[in-house]
Design a protein around this nucleic acid. Structure first.
Lengths: 165, 165
DNA sequence: CATATATGTCAACATGACTGACATAACTTC
DNA sequence: GAAGTTATGTCAGTCATGTTGACATATATG
């Protein structure tokens, strides 16, 4: 069912932008689908995945760091994080610099689940990168950075990486 | 809070793939945030947006077409679609080829809301495309197509577009 | 005629967001 | 050292959006 033709001279631009919108939808839908299935076996949802992922990514991060990344309320986070701590996927220790902080880490059990969930998404990205090629990956990165709202998030992706020729 | 260093020789590849995962998360989070705020004024959610968007994109589509795109159950769709029809954002008419079908279209009210919601996302994409440049956009498209699971979805994005030089 | 398809409906449930209010401990500032 | 701010947690209620399962109707197709 292709989109209907259109006489408007702005059509090409509008069509291109709509395709961008839709690509984000389809890609994200498929990107989350298989991890969701794995999570269901543990009676967890996508929110648990995000917490596990970022705690694995930044071991020793504080609760407030996680809130800044996820941009949800602490009450929302509290439910999933509480479950993950009680079921021993995540451990907490008091901060030394600031003893109010609870620093988060994956337990061995948590690392195991993280690997299982993330492997799936890593493979999907790896396949897409491989098929698209290195230049395409660079373009993908540029566009994705542009879609984000904040410089703070963009800064997470600074390229220390290969020198540009 | 940069990721901790790592001695594993696969680090660069793993780091690159993880950045891909995270870019999808941050971009999607920000991509949906402003439309969500607009929708809240109508007491609608993201699911309503998706329905309005795709009905606007493919006027006269059947319910089953929408289910194939959204990949949710008909019961889930029924709730939001029912609201949108009752509140006259979407109209239904019987199919002629197959009279069991209910063909969906936006009403004027629906088109108005669709414009409001989509304009926001179009502008975000337009800005990202403009800043990244044409080659980057082509790379972005390639990678996004690769992330999708099905050829059926990839086919929605066939380039009839500008002849390659 | 028999079967499959397109659609809808009712009910129950889980997840993950939200707001608002309140509490405690620890850090920072005057 | 008192006052204010920050980091975190908790209780309670609400809403949106997904799920499964069962059943119903009209229409199309073999």
């Amino acid at each position: 069912m292709p989109p209907r033709p259109h006489a408007n001279p702005l059509f090409l631009r509008d069509e291109e932008l709509r395709q961008g919108i839709e690509m984000l939808f389809y890609a994200y839908r498929d990107f989350t689908s298989e991890p969701d299935t794995i999570l269901a076996k543990y009676k967890f949802g996508r929110a648990h995945h995000r917490v596990i992922y970022f705690v694995g990514r930044y071991p020793g991060m504080a609760v407030s760091d996680l809130l800044n990344i996820l941009k949800i309320t602490k009450q929302s986070l509290s439910r999933v994080l509480g479950q993950l701590v009680r079921e021993e996927f995540i451990s907490q220790r008091q901060g030394t610099r600031d003893r109010r902080q609870r620093l988060l880490e994956l337990t061995e059990k948590g690392r195991e689940l993280e690997r299982q969930l993330t492997q799936n998404q890593r493979e999907r990205i790896a396949r897409a990168y491989r098929e698209a090629g290195a230049d395409a990956v660079e373009g993908f990165r540029k566009v994705m950075l542009g879609v984000m709202s904040s410089d703070g998030d963009r800064d997470r992706f600074e390229r220390s990486g290969p020198p540009r020729r």
